[in-house]
């Protein structure tokens, strides 16, 4: 009984440790959740649909791309493919975090992968590298507040976004490229970053002018990835360690 009580209080502590770490993410993602709701309604989504998209997809960049293409009346299958293309980076996170959470029960793993966002991966991976265990309760404490606030704020943005009078003056149509540029620059310390960015930028612009949207995303991405694959692996900082 004593052991049970101790492990229970530890579990609670783990949860709140995770919640504390989630707070910066909750604050930073709030404007984007509200912005998503507002743009979604602006592009023809109902409030319920904006809410559902946040609850079921839970991936900011892909949701923004999805509603942008929806507003341009792109074919539904292309919208889904574009969401998949934008979220394809999660394959990386999934492969990385799998080593840390493979010992969880299957249902917990299934839920863990559902809330695997960029910050979720970064914070969990940092904890694993520091030698601490990545437990389900801690992981849930980190991810659950981000999810709950994301969904609620998306709904709020959808309802109150109509009150924003002049979206052009407020720059809402160009906030996303700024946000994405910020994300691109956040990866700038990775090996081969500049060549990959240059290749992807050139290929996506050419594809945008010739083939058209949204193929420029996939074509540009493939160009950058192929460059990294073709160059000898030591350029990517791989195989340097003995």
């Amino acid at each position: 009984m004593v052991t049970e009580a101790i492990s229970e209080s530890r579990t609670g502590g783990d949860f709140w440790d995770g919640v504390r770490l989630s707070m910066p993410v909750v604050v930073a993602s709030a404007p984007f959740a509200i912005l998503f709701g507002a743009i979604a309604v602006d592009n023809g989504f109902s409030v319920l649909e904006a809410f559902l998209m946040s609850a079921l997809i839970f991936g900011g960049a892909s949701q923004m791309v999805g509603i942008e293409l929806f507003g341009q009346h792109v074919a539904p299958w292309l919208i889904v493919l574009s969401i998949f293309a934008v979220n394809f980076r999660h394959v990386l996170y999934s492969a990385g975090i799998g080593r840390r959470i493979a010992h969880w029960p299957l249902l917990q793993q299934a839920l863990g992968y559902f809330i695997l966002t960029d910050p979720q991966f970064a914070v969990a991976e940092a904890r694993a590298v520091s030698g601490k265990p990545v437990g389900f309760v801690w992981y849930l404490g980190l991810g659950l507040p981000v999810y709950v606030f994301w969904v609620i704020e998306s709904g709020l943005g959808a309802v109150f976004g109509k009150l924003i009078p002049d979206t052009h003056a407020l720059g809402i149509d160009f906030l996303l490229p700024i946000y994405f540029l910020g994300l691109v620059l956040g990866f700038r310390k990775r090996p081969l970053w500049l060549p990959v960015v240059a290749a992807s930028a050139a290929a996506s612009i050419i594809a945008y002018k010739t083939v058209g949207s949204p193929w420029h995303v996939s074509i540009g991405a493939v160009a950058g990835v192929l460059l990294a694959v073709i160059l000898p692996p030591h350029h990517s900082g791989i195989g340097e360690r003995p």
Binding site: F187, A199, S200, G220, A228
Partner: peptide, 10 residues
């Protein structure tokens, strides 16, 4: 490793 920069740049 190149996927995030490659996709987001586009």
């Amino acid at each position: 490793n190149a996927v995030p920069a490659a996709v987001l740049t586009t």
